[in-house]
Write a protein that binds this DNA or RNA. Structure first.
Lengths: 342, 342
DNA sequence: TGAAATAATGTAAACGGTTACAGTAACCGT
DNA sequence: ACGGTTACTGTAACCGTTTACATTATTTCA
């Protein structure tokens, strides 16, 4: 027994020597890129098994200039929205025999460190929303680095692959449902994060629906919910305890996570949902059907987004050309929080 | 403009030449391990910024024999249980300037590939439950590879760090609550995955509580829920539609995810929760307080588990000795699904 | 049968860093 | 003024693969 752990120190040379061939042959057999005689193949199988040889990833990466790793850059993890996204991406990555490096970062962090993942440690990047600035994205793109954007479109209409979901018309339908089926006229909006596209298009859909139905947009009914449960809770609680007592009869929470905060704030203040105030969300999280009341929302195919984004990235790695932006359809899901009894 | 992307091909030698120093000096400055004169330091800062130099991770790994990556091996991702775990781990990993490689694997996959992450591409591993077999773990341990187990204890009482949560006494209290406060006598158990320790201890706690209260354990009241919503739903639906109509008045679902399946199966079959059947879970997922009815469960500090596990792993990397198994406390959370009106 | 084509293998130079070892320059105390 | 520190800096070997190129063994076919 030597001092060093065997599994870490057995190299391709050990295998080559023991099998009586050159390292090149071993390498070729491992990578299956040049045929090797059946005799040698069998011998190598045995030797590698006996020695428990595992190729050293870094050496491989250095020599081949491929990491066999793809990176997923998120703005945050602690939100039930991200689990299906990650899951979808991981499925494809695993199927392709790659590894997945997951990191959180936000383009606001300008002062601090550069993104922890990029060309130096991955073969390609899945970039969620505002995890990177437009400039970061442009730089990566001009350097030819494979990348697909998630829930955002490319800056300057650059030909960068992107997959996102339809926000505006789904929101429009959702708000119109509130107006025509439930006769709501004072619908409060919990806006999402400032620069996020989902946020922008949902707000646009909201305003379009109001206007199309002759309801003026009242800026006093627009709060910042940031697509986060706690922030939405605080924002609405503050709004409710504010002396001004502004009337409203429904809330579009921006997303389902914020909707939970909204429902909480409402019930803490003695409002019943949906009898007093209707609440609707967006995303259709796994939990949304099980809330009390079950949440009327928009179904976004988040796991599929993760899968398609990863598939596109692998397409890029295989030198296929970027196929532009994929907009996945969404559908409104009527449950009880809007006042329906389905 | 050259053909190759500049950001990928600028090496430490380019920096050294342009700054008029040797590559060793550049390396030393980057790694801050040997002091460098202030003059040179300033020059290097400028040159590296101008050239947009980013050290090539693989080359670094190969030379230093450190990857600055830690691996998280899960059995699956698509369960709200894993988001906080991942989040906790990622926080610590980021704080330490490391990267996180996430993979799913299961020790059942014996036929197929070896685990995608290990000594060849990480400096240490966070191993969740049964993602690895006992043998895999023993091998890694004898080779001296840093590793901390999550939600499982070491095989053969080996001195491997481990962090998990208290299952048995919490379950005991939960079941006893059903018996003494709600007078339940026929409590159905949805068992978790076969070899998982959480599963074992929860079943043990369940049986101990029944016996301590003079209720015989009835194997007919034990179903396999696998800690998964859909499986629990199917198992219970099948049980209910089975001709035998076995009586029961409460369900311990094993975990909260399964509890959702249980509640669904029950209401699909015309039972009211908790009036007809009480339901309790385990984990206290983010969503559990918002279910209808709000779920009585056990709070497990999953995000903290992720943090502590990662911290322990970094301790190991800094050559601290394994500090054995950490058992985090759990507490029962009474809400309405057990029949209480809190 | 022998030249040409084909298949399998070997040799050795990268890949881009780290670090042991060996210098050199400046400083210090006597 | 000089030996001994101290503080940086440089040279070059090495980390474990891949792969271009060279070489050898085996077929193929006129």
């Amino acid at each position: 027994m030597t001092r060093r752990s065997s599994s870490v120190s057995v190299t391709i040379r050990d295998v080559a020597k023991k099998a009586g061939v050159s390292v090149a042959t071993v390498s070729r057999y491992i990578n299956r890129n040049t045929p090797v005689s059946p005799k040698v193949a069998r011998r190598l199988d045995k030797v590698m098994a006996k020695l428990k040889y595992v190729p050293h990833a870094a050496a491989r990466h250095l020599a081949s200039r491929k990491t066999r790793v793809i990176g997923l850059l998120l703005t945050n993890i602690d939100n039930d929205f991200f689990a299906p996204l990650l899951n979808g991406a991981e499925q494809i990555v695993r199927k392709e025999g790659y590894n997945l490096l997951v990191a959180t970062y936000h383009s606001d962090n300008r002062d601090s460190l550069p993104p922890p993942i990029g060309p130096h440690n991955t073969d390609g990047l899945l970039v969620f929303a505002d995890s990177l600035t437009d400039d970061d994205i442009k730089n990566l793109h001009t350097s030819g680095f494979p990348m697909v954007l998630i829930h955002r479109t490319p800056p300057d209409s650059l030909p960068i692959s992107s997959v996102t979901v339809e926000n505006k018309s789904a929101t429009y339908k959702l708000i119109e449902h509130l107006i025509v089926h439930h006769n709501k006229k004072r619908i409060l909006l919990m806006r999402g994060p400032g620069h996020q596209e989902d946020s922008y298009w949902r707000e646009t859909g909201y305003k379009a629906a109001l206007e199309a139905n002759g309801i003026p947009v009242d800026e006093e009914l627009i709060l910042d919910g940031e697509f986060e449960r706690d922030i939405a809770f605080e924002a609405l609680s503050h709004f409710l305890s504010d002396g001004r007592r502004i009337e409203f009869d429904a809330v579009f929470a921006g997303d389902d996570d914020a909707a939970i905060g909204v429902i909480n704030a409402l019930s803490d203040n003695g409002y019943r949902v949906p009898e007093d105030i209707a609440v609707v969300g967006f995303d259709d999280l796994r939990l949304s059907a099980f809330l009390s009341p079950p949440l009327t929302t928009v179904r976004a195919p988040t796991e599929t987004v993760g899968q398609i984004a990863a598939e596109k990235l692998f397409g890029l790695l295989k030198n296929e050309v970027s196929d532009g932006i994929t907009l996945l359809p969404t559908e409104i899901i009527i449950r009880r929080s809007c006042g329906c009894d389905s």
